[in-house]
Design a protein around this nucleic acid. Structure first.
Lengths: 233, 233
DNA sequence: TGTACATCAGTGAACGCGCGTTCACTGATGTAC
DNA sequence: TGTACATCAGTGAACGCGCGTTCACTGATGTAC
């Protein structure tokens, strides 16, 4: 058995194609367009052939969410890490820009993760993509932690306790960023809100009648964001 | 014909009940749960009886969106107007607080307006609720306009032109708020993003594993928001 | 006040559709001797 | 190298379901004289 067998390879290719077609269907017809029959139709096979690759439709959707969320986490992590640790403003801007770019090129994915769930879909317990979700969340906290040394003077009177956060999150932050106060975690969540808000308004078309330059609005947002954290522009 | 006839009244009541039941179904089962048959089942009648009240399912959904969006616009306008014009920070906070409160008590409505469209639904041209949409948008611009006298010093170098906005929006703003520069409109959109982001993360459950106090995060956001506009807290 | 008629909300059966899933199967690809 | 067998991707028909919508209808509520 020199390399991976032919059958194995074909199997992997078909699996990948099913996922690609499913995402494509979603992008043109919304989350409810992800049906086994539609996928099969698109691929020129019968619906039940898909059962050879995924035990059930929910299985397929879970895999899809996981893949997509992981690709988002990869994108933002990579962009941030391309910027040196001693440039917290640059890292925030890199992360945030990658976030929007990823969302625009993977609009279906963004909807799949952050929008209404696929009709009839029941996520497994623990969520569909706990690891990727955690990476994104941890990334945000890291950005806030990087900015904190310069930002703390501006948020001195911020009134947050660890009990204002989920115990799991609190424990984790305290372990990974010792000395970081709860106020910094609140900033991380607020940053998330800023980015998520503009991007999801754009993705869902609510900016369409307002501005042809959502990128410019987003850039202005980022400028004000780092300024509001006391970081040099 | 002294008052409204009995039949008329019954008719209005049934229409209202259909809408109420539809929203209720959506809140428990997502947007795809709005089916004529499910509504009829819930009301103890047959599905086709609904055709006496709405010509088609899409008609019903359009009415629903319109009602809901109008109720949002009413809520935020009323909250803002309860605060005097010479307190721009107070008006922003009142509007924003009403926005979140409305979203939490009408989570289905929020999803209906801002989330994925109802499966299979085709909105009429011009959108399902153009008037209410416009009221919300105009309200935001009004908030930015109110804050501008104090905020302008902080956004002097903001590089926005009228061409960065939709012609219709630009024309309207210039008529309603003469002298207000494009940079202020950009601020309005950014404010919208901030509020929409935190609220939709909360509504869609993405804050659940992070904080038990989304209200506190939101309040902190508002405090920083008005501060960032140079308004007194 | 009583009768004849119009209105109209709602019924019940039926249509054609697409869905997820199951079943017994076929035929090509790979493996063992 | 050739043959017998195992694997396994995919087929095709069928199931039961819920959907939007249409149709001809019934029976109670209102109205006109």
């Amino acid at each position: 058995m020199a390399t991976t067998g032919r059958r194995e390879r074909l199997r992997a290719e078909t699996t990948a194609e099913i996922k690609k077609v499913a995402l494509g269907l979603m992008s043109s017809g919304g989350p409810d367009a992800i049906t086994l029959r539609a996928i099969a139709r698109e691929m020129g096979m019968t619906a039940n052939a898909i059962y050879g690759y995924f035990a059930t439709r929910d299985d397929l959707v879970t895999t899809l969410i996981n893949d997509v969320y992981t690709s988002l986490a990869d994108a933002v992590d990579a962009a941030r890490d391309a910027c040196p640790t001693d440039d917290p403003a640059g890292r925030i801007i890199a992360w945030a820009t990658a976030f929007r770019d990823w969302a625009l090129t993977n609009a279906e994915g963004f909807r799949l993760i952050y929008g209404d769930p696929v009709p009839g879909y029941q996520a497994p317990e623990g969520g569909a993509a706990p690891e990727a979700e955690h990476r994104v969340c941890a990334g945000l906290t890291g950005l806030a932690a990087g900015a904190w040394p310069q930002a703390k003077a501006l948020f001195a009177e911020a009134d947050f306790q660890w009990s204002d956060f989920d115990p799991g999150l609190a424990a984790e932050v305290r372990e990974e960023f010792p000395g970081l106060p709860p106020a910094a975690v609140a900033i991380a969540l607020r940053i998330w809100g800023h980015l998520h808000g503009l991007v999801s308004l754009e993705i869902y078309g609510h900016l369409r009648g307002q501005t042809p330059r959502p990128d410019k609005i987003y850039r202005a947002e980022l400028t004000q964001l780092v300024r509001g954290l006391g970081l040099p522009a």
